[in-house]
Amino acid sequence: MNFMESFYTALEGIWANKMRSALTMLGIIIGITSVIAVTALGEGGQKAINDEMEKFGQNTFNVFINWETKEKIESDDLTIDDAAVLGRISPAIEYIVPYSGTTIELKGPKKEERANLTATTADYFNIQKRMKVTKGRLFSDTDDKEQRAVVVLEDKLGEKLFGQMNPIGQRVRWGNNSLVVIGTYSEEKFKFDMGQETFGAVVPIQYYNSLLEEPSIHSFMGTAVDKASVNSAMQQAKQYLTRKHQKNDHYMVRSMQESVDQFNQLTGTLTLIFSIIAGISLVVGGVGVMNIMLVSVTERTREIGIRKALGARRSDILIQFLIESIIVCLIGGLVGVLCGLGIAALISHFANLPPLLSWNSVFIAFGFSSAIGIFFGLYPANKAAKLDPIEALRYE
Rank of each mutant, 00 (worst) to 15 (best):
Glu187Lys: 08
Asn177Cys: 02
Gln164Asn: 12
Phe190Glu: 02
Lys189Pro: 13
Gln196Cys: 00
Asn166Lys: 11
Phe192Asp: 01
Tyr185Ile: 01
Gln170Cys: 12
Pro167Val: 00
Glu188Leu: 06
Lys156Leu: 09
Gly183Phe: 06
Trp174Tyr: 12
Asn176Met: 14
Met194Tyr: 10
Gly163Gln: 06
Lys189Tyr: 13
Gly158Ser: 01
Gly169Ile: 11
Gln170Glu: 15
Glu197Asp: 13
Gly158Met: 00
Gly163Lys: 11
Leu157Gly: 03
Lys156Ile: 09
Met194Asn: 15
Glu197His: 05
Gln164Asp: 12
Lys191Thr: 07
Asn177Thr: 10
Asn176Ala: 09
Leu153Arg: 10
Glu187Trp: 03
Asn176Pro: 07
Val180Thr: 11
Leu153Val: 03
Ile182Gln: 01
Lys191Cys: 12
Asn166Leu: 08
Lys160Trp: 00
Phe192Leu: 08
Leu179Ile: 05
Ser186Leu: 04
Val180Ala: 04
Gly183Ala: 03
Glu188Tyr: 01
Lys191Val: 14
Tyr185Trp: 00
Lys156Tyr: 01
Glu188Asn: 09
Met165Tyr: 07
Leu153Glu: 05
Met165Ser: 10
Thr184Val: 02
Arg173Asn: 14
Ile182Arg: 08
Lys156Gly: 05
Arg173Lys: 15
Asn177Gly: 00
Gln196Tyr: 03
Phe162Trp: 09
Gly163Ser: 11
Leu157Asn: 09
Asp155Ile: 06
Glu159Trp: 08
Ile182Pro: 12
Gly200Gln: 12
Asp193Leu: 15
Glu159Ala: 15
Thr184Phe: 10
Met194Phe: 13
Lys160Tyr: 01
Pro167His: 05
Gly175Asn: 08
Gly175Trp: 00
Gln164Trp: 02
Leu179His: 12
Glu159Cys: 11
Gly163Tyr: 04
Tyr185Asn: 02
Glu159Leu: 12
Val181Ser: 02
Gln164His: 08
Leu153Gly: 07
Phe190Trp: 00
Met194Ala: 14
Val180Glu: 09
Leu161Asn: 07
Leu161Lys: 09
Gly158Gln: 00
Phe162Ile: 07
Thr198Trp: 15
Leu157Met: 05
Glu197Ile: 12
Val172Phe: 05
Glu154Gln: 12
Asp155His: 08
Arg171Ile: 05
Glu188Ile: 09
Leu161Thr: 02
Val202Cys: 08
Gln196Trp: 00
Phe190Thr: 04
